[in-house]
Design a protein around this nucleic acid. Structure first.
Length: 429
RNA sequence: GACCCCAUCGUCUAGCCCGGUCUAGGACAUCGCCCUUUCACGGCGACGACGCCGGUUCAAAUCCGGCUGGGGUCGCCA
């Protein structure tokens, strides 16, 4: 049975790269019917924080993954010390400057990487490696080897940045008398410019992306596409579908640059495909406190959401774009004012009258009235449409005007149109 | 600098393992057209890549070598 693990260190929030490593481990385990282990590498007591730990666990779950076993290195210090003692007794390690060093002889090391094939190290920069630090805490490479061996991890999938750790670790496996697992080094996720994904590039944590209005399905979908392809020109794919066809052999070797544009596209695509109930519910998590006036009914809210659904890229966009549906007190801005340069009071007054006569206030009837009015006044539809949109929404573009009118309702529509006429009156005085 | 990894459109990729089906396919982005009351969605189209040099071969994006370029690691961090 295949046993893989994701081993985050709770010294920061779960970032994009970590999430992708976690994802590929998860996919590999689920595809093969193996086990997915989570190991918290909290040996750095100084930098490890409970806050980070909680967030990492939360993010993994939020992304839709679950683990079969979880371990904490901070609870296993005795174990590491025991093995260190054993190595000392066997003459494979020694104490020096208050620390314990593992010593190894120069030796050619071969890694048979599942993704890269054979990797050969002809020499190593050092002949010793700290395994117990002078403050008595165990060092990374040592814990990693002991845990992977004891947890019976037989496939180690990790970032390419760990390739250079691998020969040291193999030497430790051998020194400890453990069986060496198979390794697979995943390509790195690079910044949009191609360099290292770091602070320079705005948001790196999953948490931040969630806060920015990205859906977990979109993030996970996008991450999957970085270094792996489901084939058949498929781009939108769920975690569940992916787990059925994932194969470690199909993973690329090349680093992949992170593209916000593509993530945005995928996110929009998922938003568009959501059902009303789900979108309505989740969208509320992204509204500022006390954003919705008390008079707003669920039915009205849903209708509003429905006209914005196909033009929403991130859930956080909604609060701003929907504003005119809940508030009357918007101003015509500089850009929209240009559309109101011509005083069309007479024409808009006709329109007000016509709309006032609509009994069944639905978009078909409303459109009908618009066409009729335009025809009577011998003007193009656009002459009426554009100023009306500005009067009703404050913006020069947005959802279809007739459905917007239907949703706003006769009362709001007429009062906002009258306000426009007043505005023109004010200018002319 | 040493060691290691990588190399197809601007970006993510398909194809490469098993050479001919590739005048290299798809997606994002960009641009244009259509739909249309605007934006968006959708549809159609354009732009756009096998890094370079050698070798093997009747034939190379595909195999081999070198070069160049990019990336990673060189912590008593993980």
């Amino acid at each position: 049975m295949i046993r893989v693990r994701f081993a985050p260190s709770p010294t920061g929030y779960l970032h994009i790269g970590g999430a992708r490593t976690c994802l590929f481990n998860w996919l590999y385990a689920r595809n093969t019917g193996g086990k997915f282990i989570l190991r918290i590498e909290d040996t750095d007591l100084e930098r490890s924080k409970k806050e980070y730990l909680d967030e990492i666990l939360e993010s993994i779950k939020w992304l839709g993954m679950e683990w079969d076993e979880i371990y904490y290195q901070s609870q296993r210090f005795d174990l590491y010390h025991k093995y260190a003692e054993k190595l000392i007794e066997e003459g494979k390690a020694y104490r020096k400057e208050g620390a314990v060093f593992f010593k190894y002889d120069f030796e050619t090391i071969e890694i048979d990487d599942l993704i890269r094939g054979k990797i050969v190290f002809k020499e190593l920069p050092k002949q010793e490696e700290v395994i117990i630090k002078s403050d008595n805490s165990p060092a990374y490479n040592f814990c990693c080897v002991i845990d992977d061996a004891l947890m019976r991890v037989n496939r180690v999938l990790r970032g390419e940045d760990h390739i250079s750790n691998t020969p040291k670790q193999i030497l430790m496996y051998k020194g400890l008398g453990f069986e060496v697992p198979q390794f697979a080094h995943l390509p790195l996720i690079l910044s949009p410019q191609g360099g290292r994904l770091s602070k320079r590039f705005g948001a790196t944590s999953i948490r931040e992306h969630r806060q920015m209005g990205y859906l977990s399905e979109a993030i996970i979908n996008y991450l999957m596409l970085l270094g792996w392809s489901p084939g058949e020109d498929k781009e939108i794919i769920s975690l569940n579908e992916a787990k059925n066809i994932f194969n470690i052999k199909d993973v690329n070797k090349t680093g992949a640059a992170f593209s916000m544009d593509k993530l945005n596209w995928i996110n929009g695509s998922y938003i568009r495909s959501m059902n009303m109930e789900d979108l309505s519910k989740i969208s509320k998590d992204y509204l500022p406190d006390n954003y919705l006036p008390s008079w707003v009914s669920q039915d009205y809210y849903n209708k509003v959401i429905s006209i914005f659904q196909e033009r929403t890229v991130r859930l956080t966009d909604l609060a701003e774009s929907m504003k005119f549906c809940f508030y009357d007190d918007f101003k015509y801005n500089e850009e929209t004012q240009k559309i109101l340069d011509n005083d069309l009071s007479d024409k808009i007054n006709c329109l007000i009258e016509e709309l006032n006569n609509v009994n069944n206030f639905i978009k078909e009837e409303i459109e009908e009235k618009f066409r009729k009015t335009a025809e009577t006044l011998e003007v193009k539809m656009r002459v009426l449409v554009h100023p009306t949109r500005v009067a009703l929404t404050g913006n020069k573009n947005g959802p279809g005007l007739f459905e917007t009118i239907e949703i706003l309702g006769k009362e709001k529509v007429l009062s906002r149109l009258r306000k426009l006429v007043e505005y023109w009156g004010g200018i002319n005085e």
